[in-house]
Design a protein around this nucleic acid. Structure first.
Lengths: 138, 138
DNA sequence: TTTTAAATGGACTAAAGTAGTCCTATATAC
DNA sequence: GTATATAGGACTACTTTAGTCCATTTAAAA
């Protein structure tokens, strides 16, 4: 499927929300703000933390903060954090029906994947964000 | 998931195979040639026929033929035939958590989808095809 | 120092999408 | 008329995604 996963969508929304706060905020507050269920918010923030897109702090009154500004966060990095590397075909070279030598299409797909990756590399979350206060995607 | 479906992969392989024949060939023959199981080959060819990328003919000794040359078939048209329209987010505007007015991200995603679509629009199956006889993808 | 709020990690369930198969009907060449 | 194909669609199995929950760790606040 040539689709962004829902969690990636949530991730962009959460990042935009985080950028509006100076202090760290908790996943439960973000859940209320965004309307996304809390356990899901928590899950996404965990992934973003592992990818070092956001910074976390434990303990009472703490939470999550952006590590950089929205214009420094590419959509590609968010997709990578949530869905893994962008590869249009997943050729594991193990269960391939044919021998690798014959697999001449593979290289071509690689090039196309790169072009797609490039599209996402050039879009930042700041680009996604609008000037007005609306922050949900559908 | 940002991946091409397996069936789309098969479709490109089948199209390349079809281009090597002058006469119509059956799905069972294509199955043997490509190593893809016959029922699956049949399924994909049906889809390609509905999308008028290939022409079908029933009856003994008949089968499928290309409707145009490989350099006239874009990857986008194959993806459209197998997976449907390229839309990175599927916002049905019905079960959206927020009202549509607030959904400002939607327009942005549209633009990105268009850029991705553009990548596939510019690649033809002829581009995918290599000069040598190898025709399988992994 | 105790309590409380919050992240972390991982397991788990449910839902959705994909791949693959099979069967019946229909068309056409020989 | 018979054999060979496509057409359509139903169906099953499998994989991925979404979403939830719980036990643990951390640290601030009282």
């Amino acid at each position: 499927m040539l689709k962004i996963s829902k969690l990636t969508d949530y991730a962009t929304i959460l990042l935009i929300h985080l950028s509006r706060h100076q202090k760290a905020i908790s996943s439960s507050i973000l859940a209320v703000e965004t309307g996304v269920p809390e356990p899901t918010v928590a899950k996404v923030l965990k992934m973003l933390t592992r990818a070092t897109l956001v910074q976390s702090c434990r303990g009472a009154g703490s939470g999550y903060m952006l590590k950089s500004t929205l214009d420094q966060i590419t959509l590609a990095s968010v997709i990578l954090a949530i869905e893994g590397p962008i590869d249009l075909v997943n050729c594991d070279h193990e269960h391939c029906r044919v021998t690798l030598k014959n697999c001449t299409l593979y290289g071509k797909w690689e090039g196309i994947s790169l072009q797609v990756r490039d599209v996402f590399e050039k879009v930042t979350i700041a680009d996604l964000q609008n000037q007005n206060k609306a922050i949900h995607s559908c």
